[in-house]
Design a protein around this nucleic acid. Structure first.
Length: 615
RNA sequence: GCCCCAGUAGCUCAAAGGACAGAGCAGCGGCCUUCUAAGCCGUCGGUUGCAGGUUCGAGUCCUGCCUGGGGCGCCA
């Protein structure tokens, strides 16, 4: 928001450097100026000084030269309109701006832009984000949650950064797990229908049951294999059942997506990729990219060999089983092609998939490159680490999903035997949601007993879901998330309720004031340090959004949102608004509060978290 | 054997090669006849896994180790 001023400062610096024959650094990056109650930006001059010393062979220590340059520049920049003060401090050029003048600008901008604040102009560039990718006929549990929450937030951030985002889902609607499920259904549950509620639970129970039966009676396996053959032959009756049961799963997923406030623009089905995939494998063989070892072996793509790499890098992978049945790789290749056929203008095709598939993703991308697809370099694997579970939860997950992602070792990282963790089936989503809601509800009852019942329920859900989402987003994508009730549902400190609460406080103030003064106000009072800090946090926000989009990191948004909430709470504590000393101060502060409320809401929106009016 | 990720305060985590490594939780001590205390203030807490190197400057980059996790031709 200080962009224009920063550009002017840079122009001055550039002119100075040119005049003194000093090489320009590759990149300029301003940092906030340190100190309480001041606002501005600083620039380290060490890189410039180092470059000059090197270029001219000076015998001056770099820090000393940096300080000299900073001092020289400070004198010039001091005179720029909008600069309150410029000074050289230990090699840094610090430029302070007038918080009265720019504070007014920041507040005006936010109030004028409203929900658009923090959003960049449209770029006219489209990208696709594929995420969630659940398997039908299986459970949806806490392990799958991180993907959905991360994917959704990244989409919102990219959209805010000006991209047109296509949200894609890819359903694992066929494979051994589906056939096992159908076998169990046909043999033991023929004709049954899932309950209207909890479809997913019912479906996952049948899946668990199928696995249990096969584990206890391995002699039944030929039945499953026979069923798989019927599927391969596209037995109409079986296909009809598959379609019907798949729909049950899909309805269950849609319910979960609705609860999470997630939606998709395009859904691909794994089953649709099978035939194109097999055809593609033949093409790969014909092109000499794949090697057909059938019937003794599978069809492989020997990437390292094709690329002439001695060191194992891309290695070799299998694209088709020796019996001609398909694998993930068989289907991922045509899927990538299909995406670009539908959306040839994608500037990026992003896959939100856990980090264990990094090598596999590289293999797929490289194969497409070898096939000559010019868009292969636009494919991007957005990797995230797994959700770990405390040891006493792990067994339950394995129970739920016998092909679980969770490491099933008793000594998995950080086992925590907390009472809250020992609940039965705590990892299933509906139970997770129920527990979260209950915990939030207990706090709402305690904090705000006067709230009407309906509002309490709504707030409890907003808080519960927000806490869950925030706890998963407020960490580096590449770090493990160890699920823990007390931590995921911690409502204090660096957590979403703190941010929501700040939003509520803003709302409350504005309600009591009876609205926001409409006219722009230039603060005339001495701005309190807490006010200046709050304003500077507000001004940072649009830049944070762009950075979060560049790096696909909602973490930057959580950091900014929490810092903003803290700055507001500090302001709230120290600066009376309704009872301000004079009407002008009150008006400015009310507008500042309204701007803060808007910024908090916009930040929460990017995280997929609701901003309540009351709590 | 090769590759990827992580290692920062007691715990969970931040920190775009830049100013004194910061938050939260936990602990201790304060602040509610004044806009919601889901808050604020203070305090305690650090050899950033180890050893070198590059740089004016390294938690961040490079090399080598250590520890933990993950991946590596018919799993998904």
């Amino acid at each position: 928001m200080l962009d224009a001023l920063q550009r002017q400062v840079l122009d001055q610096i550039r002119a100075y450097l040119a005049e003194h024959d000093i090489p320009e650094p590759r990149e300029w990056r301003f940092a906030p100026v340190p100190g309480e109650g001041v606002w501005g930006f600083g620039l380290p001059l060490f890189p410039v000084a180092a470059a000059e010393v090197r270029a001219k062979g000076l015998r001056v220590p770099v820090p000393q030269r940096a300080q000299e340059l900073a001092a020289d520049l400070a004198r010039q920049i001091q005179t720029l309109d909008g600069v309150q003060r410029a000074e050289a401090v230990r090699g840094y050029l610090n430029v302070y701006v007038d918080p009265h003048r720019f504070g007014q600008q920041v507040v005006d901008t936010i109030l004028q832009q409203g929900p658009e604040f923090g959003r960049a102009p449209r770029r006219g560039q489209r990208l696709m984000v594929e995420f969630s990718q659940p398997n039908t006929h299986k459970a949806f549990h806490v392990g799958h949650l991180r993907n959905v929450i991360l994917g959704e937030s990244v989409c919102r951030i990219l959209d805010a950064a000006g991209y047109d985002v296509v949200r894609a889902n890819y359903l694992g609607d066929i494979g051994w797990h589906v056939i096992k499920w159908l076998w169990n259904y046909l043999t033991y549950h023929a004709g049954e229908e899932p309950p209207a509620e909890d479809k997913t639970v019912w479906i996952s129970q049948l899946y668990i049951e199928a696995n249990r039966r096969l584990k206890e009676n391995p002699e039944l396996e030929p039945q499953v294999r026979a069923l798989f053959r019927r599927w391969e032959e596209q037995d109409p009756e079986l296909v009809a059942l598959w379609e019907k049961t798949r729909q049950w799963s899909i309805e269950g997923f849609e319910e979960i997506y609705r609860l999470l406030d997630v939606h998709f623009d395009r859904v691909y089905y794994e089953s649709e990729m099978e035939e194109p995939g097999k055809a593609l494998v033949e093409e790969l063989i014909a092109k000499g990219i794949a090697r057909d070892l059938r019937p003794e072996g599978p069809v492989i793509v020997p990437l390292d060999e094709l690329l002439g790499l001695d060191k194992p890098t891309y290695r070799t992978y299998v694209v088709l089983r020796s019996d001609g049945t398909s694998l993930y790789a068989t289907k991922d290749l045509p899927l990538a092609i299909q995406k670009f056929r539908e959306y040839p203008d994608l500037v990026r095709s992003i896959y939100v998939i856990d980090v264990r598939q990094s090598l596999y993703m590289k293999q797929i991308f490289k194969t497409l490159e070898l096939m000559g697809y010019e868009w292969a370099d636009r494919l991007y694997h957005l990797a995230y680490e797994l959700v770990l579970l405390p040891a006493n939860l792990v067994r339950e997950v394995v129970e739920v999903d016998l092909e679980a992602e969770a490491p099933a070792q008793e000594d998995s990282p950080k086992p925590q035997a907390k009472a809250a963790s020992s609940r039965e089936g705590a990892v299933l989503l509906d139970q997770l949601f129920r527990e979260a809601r209950q915990r939030a509800r207990a706090i709402v009852d305690e904090k705000n007993p006067a709230l009407p019942e309906e509002a309490k329920e709504r707030v409890a859900w907003q808080v519960a879901l927000g806490a869950l989402k925030y706890s998963m987003l407020a960490r580096e994508n590449t770090r493990f998330f160890t699920f823990d009730w007390d931590q995921a549902l911690d409502f204090n400190g660096n957590a979403s309720p703190t941010i929501q609460y700040a939003h509520v406080r803003c709302a409350s103030l504005l309600r009591k004031a009876g609205g926001v003064p409409e006219e722009s106000v230039r603060p005339a009072h001495d701005l309190h340090p807490a006010e200046v800090a709050l304003i500077s946090r507000l001004a940072e926000f649009p830049g944070v959004v762009l950075r979060a989009a560049e790096e696909f990191k909602p973490l930057h948004i959580t950091n900014a949102a929490f810092a903003l909430a803290r700055a507001f709470n500090d302001f709230y504590d120290r600066c009376p608004v309704l009872a301000a000393d004079d009407p002008a101060t009150r008006d400015f502060r009310l507008r500042l509060v309204a701007a803060t409320k808007q910024a908090l809401a916009n930040a929460l929106h990017l995280l997929g978290i609701e901003a309540p009016e009351v709590m």
